[in-house]
């Protein structure tokens, strides 16, 4: 086995643009779920609306990416309001089902053949990236020689992405140490108690949904910039589930939980992927093809991830950095 490739590839992913995407998505979910107790299973929908908004402003209307970002932010807020109004008065599991349904509605409508002239159908959209790449200050690969390297484009996305992560974490920290954050945490514990103390629980939940959704929108922007394209497959239901896994690995209701979670998650996933890939590759693979071929090897990381999510939730629900006494998820 080639351990060098294993390490290099894993580090590349663990700090790379994809980890940034899931980190931002998980920061949003942390606000929703970790602090407020809202089960938003439609984070992929927020990401998709924002990503497509930014791209289409450029591809359809010929506007700048900046305006696209602004439109994406506005549409995300509108989406949060639309989802929040019918569901935030309901029980937690209703919100879960409605948000997951809404994300699926968004995905099916955007990817519909009917709108493929404007939205690209299943193929998605490209041809917007130039202005972003023009701003790229890096013109050759960056990294530590012999350990890990990123292409200039990737490193540019990473730079912007990790800066966004820093900003998002700072905002989360500022909010969560304030009385506002205290109300959110109280709602997570018992919303009737908070209501009995004269707080407008509904309004706080709505604000939480919007703010967490906006962090999801940032993730959507980074998805588009990372791949130089947006397509429906980037925003499938599983994306939200992966983001939850990221959050739970790092620890919910911890400001830096999603950051640690994203890095660890992508490191492990890539290690598994490369390891099984190597073990099934070549003429005389370590694992015989009758047991596992290379297609099956690519499934192993998802199998392990499902198993990992279950075990994590059962044996260490507070995540790696969480405090069990202060754990967000328990007997309700």
């Amino acid at each position: 086995m080639d351990f060098n490739e294993l390490l290099t590839g894993s580090l590349q992913q663990a700090l790379g643009p994809t980890a940034v995407v899931y980190c931002l998505a998980a920061i949003g979910l942390n606000i929703h779920f970790g602090y407020t107790g809202l089960l938003n299973f439609g984070q992929a929908g927020f990401m998709m609306v924002a990503g497509y908004a930014m791209v289409t402003m450029s591809t359809i209307w010929g506007q700048s990416l900046w305006l696209g970002v602004l439109v994406g932010v506005i549409l995300t807020v509108i989406l949060a309001l639309m989802l929040g109004v019918p569901t935030l008065r309901l029980r937690a599991d209703y919100l879960a089902i409605v948000t997951i349904a809404a994300a699926e509605i968004i995905r099916q409508v955007i990817s519909a053949a009917k709108f493929s002239d404007d939205l690209g159908g299943q193929d998605g959209l490209t041809g917007f990236i130039k202005p972003f790449r023009k701003m790229n200050p890096f013109d050759e690969p960056v990294g530590i020689d012999g350990v890990v390297m990123w292409s200039p484009n990737d490193f540019w996305v990473m730079t912007v992405g990790w800066l966004l992560v820093v900003a998002a974490c700072l905002i989360t920290w500022l909010l969560m140490r304030s009385p506002w954050g205290r109300v959110l945490k109280s709602i997570r514990e018992d919303e009737d108690a908070v209501r009995s103390l004269g707080k407008n629980v509904y309004a706080y939940k709505m604000q939480s949904l919007i703010i967490g959704g906006l962090f999801g929108a940032l993730a959507g922007f980074v998805v588009a910039l990372r791949s130089a394209t947006v397509g429906p497959s980037f925003f499938a239901t599983d994306v939200t589930f992966f983001a939850y896994t990221v959050l739970l690995i790092g620890g919910a209701a911890r400001v830096l939980g999603p950051v640690a979670g994203a890095v660890i998650f992508w490191f492990l996933i890539t290690v598994l992927d490369i390891a099984f890939g190597q073990m099934t590759a070549g003429a005389d693979p370590i694992i015989p093809a009758s047991i596992m071929d290379s297609t099956q090897a690519s499934l192993m990381r998802l199998i392990f991830m499902g198993l990992g999510l279950m075990l994590l939730m059962i044996y260490r629900p507070q995540g790696i950095f969480g405090d069990r006494r202060e754990l967000a998820i328990d007997g309700r």
Binding site: L248, G306, L309
Partner: peptide, 21 residues
């Protein structure tokens, strides 16, 4: 074990991912 309902819901998501693959 007295695992909470939300935690069980997330376990079921892991199970779904596991079984599907």
């Amino acid at each position: 074990r007295g695992t909470g309902l939300v935690a069980m819901m997330i376990v079921s998501i892991g199970l779904s991912l596991f079984l599907r693959n």
